[in-house]
């Protein structure tokens, strides 16, 4: 699931690619890759952006959260795609970063490309038209 956090005025932005909503069930697994979890990756990226531009007026766009194979080994909280979307939304809201646009859910994987020149965000899905969010 991709999250683009940016400020057009300050010309700064970062793109995160998480795979899981919550790092807490994994804390006993040794060294965690913080970039993989919504609850760790987004605060870390925002801290990095704010180190460069402390007063940045940050906004976010998100894409992803598909559920490709429905084998229903899944918990009652929904599939991992849905849970990722929810976790990213909650983390953004806790960080007080408004969500401007999203392209989420469905069954297909997405590629997300953010351009730091004009802040256009391209979302590509296999066999579909490219969209900008």
């Amino acid at each position: 699931m991709g999250t683009f956090i940016y400020d057009e005025q300050a010309k700064i932005g970062g793109l995160s690619h998480i795979m899981l909503p919550d790092s807490r069930p994994f804390v006993d697994r040794g060294l965690l890759n913080t970039a993989k979890f919504a609850d760790l990756a987004l605060p870390e990226m925002v801290a990095g952006l704010r180190r460069r531009v402390p007063e940045a007026n940050l906004k976010a766009k998100i894409a992803g959260g598909a559920n490709m194979f429905n084998f229903s080994t899944l918990s009652e909280n929904g599939d991992v795609g849905q849970r990722n979307v929810r976790a990213v939304e909650e983390t953004l809201s806790a960080l007080k970063i408004p969500l401007i646009a999203e392209h989420v859910g469905g069954k297909s994987g997405r590629t997300m490309i953010a351009d730091l020149n004009d802040f256009k965000t391209m979302v590509r899905v296999v066999n579909c038209k490219i969209v900008y969010i």
């Binding site: 795979m19 490709m68 194979f69 429905n70 991992v80 994987g109």
Partner: peptide, 21 residues
């Protein structure tokens, strides 16, 4: 189940569908 998609999306979804993260 048949799905046309990017290899990266397919393979990671296949492992994650078995809760392998």
């Amino acid at each position: 189940v048949i799905q046309d998609d990017y290899f990266g999306a397919v393979i990671s979804s296949a492992y994650m569908a078995l809760d392998q993260y």
